[in-house]
């Protein structure tokens, strides 16, 4: 089963959360669009990976003990050249050392920075009655303040996944609004279906949060992923 070995390792290590690189690899294994990325354990490795994934890049701290990476200065965006990657790497390690001195640091994820698009959230969770459920919403205030989201119980069809993108109140933003172009709903539906497939295949996964997913006129890319497993305490 795709993804089973990653999840097995996470459970064996007693973790509840996949590392960023593991999450991206799992999504990639299911054919979902994720940016090129690699885990760096040193400055030099970070530079090498940055060259491979292509500039601009983003650096993110990878630690089993840190849930909100930005709060500890663990994320730096928009790095255009090797010099700034080297400097950012040092800055992240220093900041995390100060703000979360007890956190174990596995490394730093070096990820190709995807272009800005309309930010959407695609997620999944397990409901006590219906088990796996997928969610769709627009990023930022739409989800956090307005709770403007749509749900489906898995498994679902392509037309149901498309219907999820039409059901939210702010759906007109996806259709093109004023100067903004219409978004590729098919690409979003594909990600929704992929997430549903992962939930149905890998029962140990408790939650998936793809936030944000950048939605474009053509295609979509997952810019950040958080995957939790039902780990033992």
């Amino acid at each position: 089963m795709k993804g089973a070995s990653i999840v097995k390792r996470v459970l064996e290590e007693g973790r509840k959360k996949l590392y960023e690189d593991e999450a991206l690899n799992l999504l990639r294994a299911y054919g979902l669009p994720v940016p090129a990325a690699g885990l760096a354990k040193s400055e030099d490795e970070a530079l090498r990976i940055a060259g491979e994934v292509g500039y601009p890049v983003v650096l993110k701290i990878v630690s089993p003990d840190i849930i909100h990476k930005s709060d500890v200065g663990g994320v730096i965006l928009g790095l255009e050249d090797p010099g700034s990657v080297r400097e950012a790497y040092r800055r992240i390690i220093r900041s995390v050392g100060e703000k979360a001195p007890n956190a174990r640091v596995v490394g730093v994820l070096v990820q190709h920075m995807v272009p800005q698009g309309l930010e959407v959230i695609i997620g999944a969770t397990r409901d006590p009655v219906f088990d796996s459920v997928v969610m769709f919403g627009l990023g930022g205030v739409f989800v956090e303040v307005l709770r403007d989201v749509s749900f489906r119980v898995t498994p679902l069809t392509r037309s149901e996944a498309l219907a999820m993108t039409r059901e939210i109140k702010a759906h007109r933003l996806l259709e093109g609004y004023r100067n903004t172009p219409p978004r590729d709903r098919e690409a979003l539906a594909k990600i929704i279906l992929g997430v549903a497939e992962i939930m149905d295949n890998v029962k140990e996964i408790r939650e998936i949060d793809l936030n944000p997913v950048m939605s474009y006129t053509e295609g979509a890319v997952i810019a950040d992923a958080r995957i939790l497993v039902a780990g033992r305490e």
Partner: peptide, 22 residues
């Protein structure tokens, strides 16, 4: 106390409604 948006938003009634539609 959920670590993700999805879990926090997936109140049982919201999910139930979607299930009814499906």
């Amino acid at each position: 106390a959920a670590a993700s948006h999805t879990a926090a938003l997936a109140g049982s009634y919201e999910v139930f409604r979607s299930a009814l539609r499906q």
